[in-house]
């Protein structure tokens, strides 16, 4: 209970701070409406946004035997049921909604985290040994290493030997990073300051995979590291972020030595709550000098 109270407190503190900050800074919300000019003489009416329909409440079967039960079933699963058909094929709006959700997932994978985002959060920008997105997708081995230039940058720009090194990486969803980090990072920093953990210089790794944290560990020798990385998008959400935590991050460490907190997004664990929770996990990892299978929280 005490832990939950602590998390609530941090969330409140951070939300207040963000609101204060927003008054001056206004780091623009990620989804800015893009206005396109329509040619003169065309109808001013705009079509409804098909992605705003709550699919779990949208029943398309025309005359079901039991409509109430159908609605209950739809509530019980996010699966796309009760969608009906044109012959053996899906209805047009069902098909278009599916394509829209897939488009969001593809964009999350293929787009890059923006330069403004990296500047706004004062992150030192690094890159893995991958030259481009294509190489990132096909060469997981290179995504786990830093480019030689980035090793140099790290040496010049980042503080070594911190208690905790914060690493952010695009992974498989730039959207997850841009959507969650603005709430998560302040909550994490606030929480860490509350429990008295000092942090190094936060860095961002473009084309990064989880194990690139081992490389950064070798260079900076922090006591522990946390990596916030975009998860592979599903059709349900393209915004899911994971946090990987490692005590004594170093080359050759086992996957099982990492502690993972996944499913961070507004429909799962909300980012500010996750940030507060993670600060307690970090504290415990530092105290017990262990992470992964050797650690339970």
């Amino acid at each position: 209970m005490a832990l939950e109270d602590n998390i609530k407190l941090i969330v409140e503190q951070v939300l207040n701070q963000i609101n204060e900050k927003n008054k001056e800074l206004v780091p623009a919300p990620v989804q800015q409406e893009k206005k396109t000019a329509c040619p003169a003489g065309t109808d001013e009416t705009i079509l409804d946004d098909i992605t705003q329909v709550d699919l779990q409440k949208y029943l398309q079967v025309p005359n079901p035997v039991n409509g109430d039960f159908y609605r209950e079933m739809k509530k019980a699963t996010p699966a796309r049921i009760g969608v009906w058909r044109a012959g053996t094929r899906p209805l047009t709006d069902t098909l278009l909604r599916f394509r829209a959700d897939h488009a969001t997932a593809q964009d999350a994978v293929l787009n890059d985290v923006s330069e403004e985002f990296i500047q706004d959060f004062d992150l030192v920008k690094l890159q893995s040994a991958c030259r481009d997105k294509d190489e990132f997708l096909t060469r997981p081995d290179l995504g786990r290493k830093l480019s030689p230039e980035s090793v140099e940058t790290l040496g010049k720009m980042a503080k070594a030997g911190a208690e905790l090194q914060i690493i952010i990486a695009d992974g498989l969803s730039s959207t997850a990073v841009e959507t969650n980090v603005p709430d998560l990072l302040p909550a994490l920093l606030q929480g860490l300051s509350n429990v008295g953990v000092s942090v190094g210089t936060p860095v961002f790794v473009k084309y990064g995979r989880v194990a690139v944290m081992d490389c950064i560990g070798e260079e900076l020798k922090p006591q522990a590291a946390i990596m916030l990385i975009g998860e592979r998008p599903g059709l349900g959400t393209a915004e899911s972020l994971s946090a990987y935590l490692a005590y004594n991050p170093r080359a050759g460490m086992l996957e099982s030595e990492r502690t993972v907190v996944s499913n961070i997004h507004k429909g799962g664990t909300p980012p500010s709550e996750a940030g507060a929770h993670l600060s307690s996990v970090v504290k415990a990892i530092l105290e017990r000098k262990a992470s992964g299978v050797n650690f339970s929280f």
Partner: peptide, 19 residues
């Protein structure tokens, strides 16, 4: 359902496709 696996987060053939 609609080829969208809500647990494994991948897409495959749907009820409609098999039919």
């Amino acid at each position: 359902p609609m080829g969208d696996d809500v647990m494994l987060n991948y897409q495959c053939t749907s009820f409609h496709d098999v039919a």
